[in-house]
Design a protein around this nucleic acid. Structure first.
Lengths: 151, 151
DNA sequence: ATATACTTGACTAAAAAACTAGGTTATGTG
DNA sequence: CACATAACCTAGTTTTTTAGTCAAGTATAT
């Protein structure tokens, strides 16, 4: 399956935007510091997130990114799909040509697993995550550390 | 996530054993032909399946592998776990040290996804698969082709 | 003007996955 | 007993993917 650091980073980063964009656009350096992710890598990821209309950007001083849709409209699945190849556990990418030009013995099993995972990730939005206690706690911790670094 | 060809091959191959071991041990060359998987790679996989007591082996002519437990006792999860590292979608392997020595913002999300996938795969046995129509159909097709090749 | 910050695309090092090679050992059969 | 068969074992090698860097831009607020 396609479930890599890239997708994880993207979800973490866009969640960071969702948590902070009430004070205007969030810039990548801040995200990089807060979430401990490489800045240049984030640039790549946000380029894709923007192409997929999940974030919008503002250039220049005070610029950065904000959500292009409501946090309750952006699902975790969309974010992962934006930066990674579609999540897929089959050998044939769903084309049913896993054995010669026919379905292999376990084709349907992997398809089912795909659906299962997608179902879970489709049902989960950034708004859901923001409301979770564990996310709130970690986010507050990170904000405190940022304040200390800047003073 | 750790969901690779290796795990897929292993499930396909052991399912092949489950489907055919009523006529005595199933040898790897046959599996290799029927499922179109590299023989030497299968050897590696079955070595692990045996270590994990999912199959037992018989050497010499007429030898091969058969299930070491009932098909209703062997879950897809067990098979995958046997040949691959544990399925895990977190950055920290569940150790909560994804950011410095603390939990990252999305730690709990990935843990939850882990549970979800494991739950699905734990609830599915080889016996379940054998009873599926799509598996029966593909298996019959494969058997016919094997007969043709041998004649 | 100038500093800030986004944009783009090519490039690379490192790790993991997939697969191969070449043997050794056990065992049923004639 | 010889010999064919098939499991077993240990190292490789090759390929692919991933994660991340670098460099050279462009746009914009102040």
């Amino acid at each position: 399956m396609k479930m890599t650091t890239k997708g994880r980073y993207a979800v973490t980063a866009i969640l960071d935007v969702a948590l902070h964009d009430s004070n205007g656009p969030v810039n990548l350096s801040d995200i990089s510091q807060r979430q401990d992710l490489p800045l240049t890598y984030l640039e790549q990821l946000f380029s894709k997130l923007k192409k997929n209309h999940l974030v919008e950007s503002a250039r220049g001083p005070g610029g950065g990114y904000r959500l292009a849709q409501g946090a309750d409209q952006i699902t975790v699945a969309k974010v992962i799909y934006s930066v990674d190849e579609p999540i897929d556990v089959t050998r044939c990418k769903g084309k049913q040509n896993c054995q010669g030009d026919l379905r292999c013995l376990t084709h349907d099993l992997w398809m089912e697993l795909n659906m299962h995972i997608s179902g879970f990730l489709n049902g989960l939005t950034l708004a859901d995550l923001i409301n979770r206690n564990n996310v709130k706690q970690v986010s507050e911790r990170q904000d405190v550390i940022m304040m200390q670094l800047q003073s």
